[in-house]
Simulated assay, not measured.
Amino acid sequence: MASFLKFLCILGLVVVLAGVSDGNGECGKTSPDDEAMKLAPCAAAAQDSNAAVPAACCAQVKRFGQNPKCLCAVLLSDTAKASGVNPEIAISIPKRCNFANRPVGYKCGPYTLP
Rank of each mutant, 00 (worst) to 15 (best):
M1H: 06
M1P: 02
A2E: 12
S3G: 07
F4D: 14
L8G: 05
S21T: 09
S21F: 11
D22L: 15
D22G: 15
N24A: 13
G25W: 07
E26L: 13
C27R: 12
C27T: 13
C27Q: 12
G28R: 09
K29M: 06
K29I: 04
S31K: 11
D34A: 15
A36Y: 00
L39N: 11
P41N: 10
P41W: 09
A43G: 05
A46P: 07
D48M: 06
V53K: 00
V53E: 01
V53W: 02
V53A: 02
A55P: 05
A55I: 14
C57R: 14
A59D: 15
Q60H: 00
P68V: 03
K69W: 13
K69Y: 15
C70G: 10
S77N: 05
A80T: 04
A80V: 06
K81R: 12
K81H: 10
S83Y: 00
S83K: 05
G84N: 02
N86S: 14
N86Y: 09
P87G: 04
P87D: 07
I91L: 13
P94A: 09
K95E: 12
K95M: 07
R96H: 02
R96K: 10
N98K: 10
F99S: 08
A100R: 03
A100K: 05
A100G: 00
R102N: 11
R102S: 08
R102D: 09
P103D: 01
P103E: 00
V104P: 00
C108N: 07
G109C: 05
Y111I: 02
L113H: 03
